[in-house]
């Protein structure tokens, strides 16, 4: 019964990693010797460190804003105890459908004052044309904005869900001890959903590290070359498909994969998120 999945697991996860590893050692025109020199070749590529800086800046904006907004809005949503929380939650889920190619399309218009429903805010910020925002120095904010809106609402609803599992007794006890709404939220509820927030942070970190579609599409068709090789995955794509250096491309891709695998192992073994699942095995 396990066989169909096992076949997919072997063919489309394990073997590809093995193949990619052997490809990553192959010689190329740029590196006729092959071997681990391909990994050094990538790190020494003039595009590598700028991409690392881009991704780090992106994550430094994106991750904290996710944690702060998701934690505070889900706590607020939980505090109102009103029938309006249902339509609010549905509203928060809407942007989840604006991802990838659609995100580029929608945010292009949202950030262009000529078309935008947010024209007032844009002008207030001193932005009179979209090209002021879609500028190399500000791109990281644009990508963080897109990623934030695609994921935040989803996670607010999820964290709100995890708040519902806090037992009434604990909340009742806090009330009797004289805690007000804010104290309950910060001192009782927040610590109880901490592990879900950590889980979210690690998942968003892994996904953010791999950002590709948004910078790629923006720079291949909307503003030509504005974000060329902006992210590490774009660099890997360029090495493979325009640099004809599959060895270096797979080397880079495996390095990124390794970081994600480490993040995954952290979640599994260093947080208590999957304890219940793991315990069944012991």
């Amino acid at each position: 019964m396990f066989t169909p999945y096992a076949v997919l697991l072997v063919l489309f996860a394990i073997v590809p990693i093995g193949l990619a590893f052997s490809t990553s050692l192959k010689p190329s025109l740029a590196n006729p010797e092959g071997g681990f020199a391909n990994y050094l070749f990538v790190i020494n590529d003039f595009r590598f460190w700028p991409a690392v800086i881009n991704i780090s800046t992106f994550l430094a904006i994106y991750l904290p804003s996710m944690v702060i907004v998701v934690a505070s809005l889900s706590l607020l949503l939980d505090a109102i105890k009103s029938r309006w929380s249902v339509p609010l939650r549905l509203a928060y889920l809407v942007p989840a459908s604006i991802t990838g190619a659609v995100a580029i399309l929608v945010w292009y218009f949202m950030l262009e004052p000529k078309f935008s429903p947010f024209k007032g805010i844009l002008l207030e910020l001193g932005l009179t044309s979209g090209s002021q925002i879609f500028a190399q120095t500000k791109l990281v904010w644009v990508f963080a904005l897109m990623a934030f809106f695609t994921g935040a609402g989803n996670w607010i609803v999820i964290q709100y869900g995890s708040l519902q599992s806090i037992s009434e007794d604990i909340l009742e006890a806090a009330k009797i001890d004289g805690a007000n709404v804010f104290q309950t939220a910060l001192q009782i509820k927040l610590p109880l959903i901490r592990k879900y927030l950590i889980y979210m942070t690690i998942l968003t970190f892994a996904a953010g590290l791999q950002i590709f579609v948004e910078p790629y599409l923006l720079s291949s068709s909307v503003y030509p070359n504005i974000a060329r090789d902006w992210s590490l995955n774009q660099l890997s794509y360029s090495l493979a498909f325009s640099g004809a250096n599959l060895g270096a491309a797979t080397a880079l891709s495996l390095m990124l994969l390794l970081v994600c695998v480490i993040a995954a192992l952290l979640v599994i073994f260093r947080t208590d998120f999957f304890d219940e699942a793991r315990m069944k095995e012991d």
């Binding site: 590809p16 791999q210 995955n233 493979a240 993040a263 995954a264 699942a277």
Partner: peptide, 23 residues
């Protein structure tokens, strides 16, 4: 098998794209 599945589920699918292309 369970641990491998958990890892594969947490690693974003994008990370597998180039290895999958080779395969």
């Amino acid at each position: 098998l369970l641990i491998v599945t958990l890892v594969a589920m947490i690693v974003p699918p994008v990370a597998f794209v180039l290895p999958l292309f080779v395969q």
